[in-house]
Simulated assay, not measured.
Amino acid sequence: MNEVEVIVQEIEKLFENHPVSKIAKGSNVPDQTVRDLKNGKSDIMKSKFQTVAKLYHYQNSLEKKN
């Protein structure tokens, strides 16, 4: 598995385990962007790097708390 696949997998885990509002607030990504990504309306691979980075870092911060 390459690095990009790992990042996408971590973001998908975030989407599976947390509601849109919590993800948006914690990552500073707009609600609608999170909702579109979570529901498959938008593709993570076509998202802005900044959005992907924020979501990935937020997921990592949640895992470190556990």
Rank of each mutant, 00 (worst) to 15 (best):
F49Q: 10
S42G: 06
K22E: 15
N28M: 03
K41V: 07
S47E: 13
T51R: 08
F15I: 00
I23W: 05
I23R: 10
V29N: 02
A24G: 01
L55A: 14
V6E: 05
N17I: 06
K13H: 07
L37K: 01
H57R: 08
N60D: 11
K65D: 13
A24Q: 02
K65W: 01
G26F: 09
E16G: 01
L62D: 05
Q50R: 09
L14S: 14
A53C: 09
F49V: 08
K54H: 01
H18A: 08
Q9F: 10
Y56A: 04
N28C: 01
M1L: 10
Q32V: 08
Q50I: 05
S27C: 03
L14G: 06
K64E: 12
N28W: 05
K13T: 05
V34I: 15
Y58R: 00
Y58W: 05
S47K: 07
L62V: 03
N28Q: 14
K46R: 13
Q50F: 01
K22Y: 09
A53K: 12
G40K: 01
V4R: 15
Y58S: 03
K65M: 15
K41F: 07
S21R: 14
G26N: 06
V34S: 01
L55M: 08
F15L: 02
H57D: 04
Y56N: 14
P30G: 02
N17S: 14
V6R: 01
K25Y: 09
P30M: 05
V4W: 14
N17W: 05
I7H: 06
N28V: 00
T51E: 14
A24M: 11
G40F: 12
P19A: 08
K65F: 06
S21T: 14
I23A: 08
K54G: 02
E10W: 00
V20P: 00
F15R: 03
Q50P: 08
K25Q: 11
K41Q: 03
V4E: 10
I23S: 04
A53D: 12
V29S: 07
Q59T: 08
I7K: 09
F15P: 00
E63V: 03
N39A: 10
D31H: 03
M45K: 10
F15H: 06
T33F: 07
S42V: 04
K22H: 14
K41G: 06
V8P: 12
K48G: 12
Q50D: 13
S61Q: 03
E5C: 03
V34H: 03
T33Y: 02
L37G: 05
R35T: 00
G26V: 03
K65H: 06
K64R: 11
N28G: 04
K41W: 06
N2C: 00
I11H: 06
F15D: 02
F49P: 11
A24Y: 00
K64D: 15
V20W: 02
H18R: 13
